[in-house]
Computed example of a mutant assay.
Amino acid sequence: MARRGGYEIGLAKYIIKTPLTVVGFVSMYIFGGSIFAGLAGVEHLFTSQSVTEAVLIYFLTEALPPTTVGEVLAQVVAGTVTAGFLWYWNTAV
């Protein structure tokens, strides 16, 4: 039987410590980028007149890598929090 609160402590450690390693930072950067790219792609599909227009707009505006430190950190935070909660929900719940 798991220790009381063990998974919650593990979730906090996962979210805090994962981006502090080089491999964790890069992994969460890529994962967060794929989350943002997927959301942007879905948004363009629903707001454009055609699929071709949506794909063209997406690749010209959203598929480029982030250019500011804030955008990079936002991707890492989004990836880390999402991955942490996915781990928690798949193991503790």
Rank of each mutant, 00 (worst) to 15 (best):
I9S: 09
T47V: 06
V72S: 00
G5L: 04
Y58L: 12
S50W: 02
V42G: 01
R4E: 03
W89Q: 12
E71Y: 02
T52Q: 12
G70M: 00
A63R: 10
K17N: 00
S50K: 02
Y14I: 04
A63L: 09
F46N: 02
L11Q: 05
Q75Y: 14
E53A: 14
L56G: 03
M28C: 07
I16R: 11
K17E: 03
T18I: 00
G5Y: 05
R3N: 10
T91P: 07
E71C: 02
V93D: 11
L73S: 09
T80P: 11
T68C: 00
L45C: 08
P65E: 13
L39P: 09
H44Y: 04
G33E: 10
V81F: 07
L20A: 05
A83K: 02
T61A: 04
E62R: 14
K17C: 03
T67V: 02
V26L: 04
Q49S: 08
Y29I: 03
I30D: 12
E71D: 04
I57W: 12
K17W: 01
E43P: 03
G33T: 11
V76A: 05
M28Y: 03
G5T: 06
E8T: 05
G41C: 08
G10N: 07
L11S: 10
G6E: 00
Y29L: 13
L73N: 12
Y88A: 08
G84I: 01
A12W: 08
Y7A: 07
I16H: 13
V23Y: 15
P66V: 15
I15Q: 12
L73A: 15
I16K: 11
K13H: 14
L56W: 02
H44P: 00
M28D: 05
V81N: 03
T68S: 01
V69S: 05
I9A: 09
L73Q: 15
I9P: 03
V23A: 15
V26N: 07
F31H: 12
A2E: 11
A54F: 04
V72P: 00
A74T: 05
L73Y: 13
L73T: 14
L20V: 01
G41E: 05
A92G: 03
K17A: 01
P65F: 15
A92Q: 01
V77M: 06
I15E: 13
Y7N: 08
G24R: 08
P65G: 08
L20D: 03
Y88D: 06
A54Q: 04
G38Y: 00
L64T: 07
T21C: 15
A12V: 15
S48I: 09
T47K: 04
V23R: 12
L60T: 14
E8N: 08
K13E: 09
P19D: 13
T67I: 00
V81T: 10
K13Q: 14
V51Q: 06
V42Y: 02
T68Y: 00
V93I: 14
V76G: 10
V23K: 15
L56D: 13
Y58F: 13
V76C: 01
R3L: 12
F59H: 15
I15D: 12
V69E: 12
